[in-house]
């Protein structure tokens, strides 16, 4: 991994951070629908492999935990597993076609939501706030957005070559 990749990774995390803050300013409901940190983790895991996915997942998860009065590590564990899985499975199956990419990202986001919810409920002994059910749409909406961005970035890269 070259310096350029690291800069790209840091910039992407910053963009996710920025978008998260922006969403919170627009409407709190939007926070339930989009998970930009997960998209960054999955994208880099697809590009760079499972080890980077796991590390970036841990970092982004802790960053997400820093937004909350939550316990550090809850989102971290969920994102570490998702980052690793994204990198590992994408080396076994081709997830470049847009439909397959969408299904792949959607499934990973569902897994992340389940792990996070279970850990949260276990640690806090309380039910996760679903935002009136909005959180259940998070994997779908984030996956649609993620697949479109992934496709756009790949097109941009291929046109540069």
């Amino acid at each position: 991994m070259v310096m350029k990749d690291y800069i790209g990774m840091v910039l992407s995390v910053l963009v996710a951070f920025l978008l998260y803050s922006l969403l919170a300013k627009i409407s709190v409901s939007l926070l339930f629908l989009f998970n930009f940190f997960s998209l960054i983790v999955i994208y880099f895991a697809l590009e760079k492999g499972e080890i980077y996915g796991a590390f970036l997942g841990a970092f982004c998860g802790l960053l997400q935990d820093s937004f909350s009065m939550s316990v550090f590590g809850v989102a971290g564990i969920a994102k570490t597993i998702v980052g690793y899985s994204a990198g590992y499975f994408s080396s076994k199956i081709n997830v470049t076609p847009i439909r397959r990419n969408f299904v792949f990202v959607f499934l990973l986001l569902c897994v992340e939501l389940i792990i996070w919810s279970v850990l949260y409920s276990f640690i806090f002994s309380e039910r996760v706030n679903t935002g009136g059910g909005l959180i259940f749409f998070q994997p779908l909406i984030t996956a649609v957005l993620g697949s479109l961005v992934y496709r756009f970035v790949r097109k941009l890269k291929s046109s540069k070559m």
């Binding site: 499972e50 080890i51 590390f55 997942g57 841990a58 802790l62 550090f72 590590g73 564990i77 570490t80």
Partner: peptide
């Protein structure tokens, strides 16, 4: 094996992190 060890270490690290915070 190396990547699996890294994954397990990261998860272990975060479990330790959680355990030192709960109960807070």
């Amino acid at each position: 094996t190396k990547s699996l060890i890294i994954l397990l270490s990261l998860i272990f690290f975060q479990f330790v992190l959680i355990s030192i915070q709960v109960p807070r």
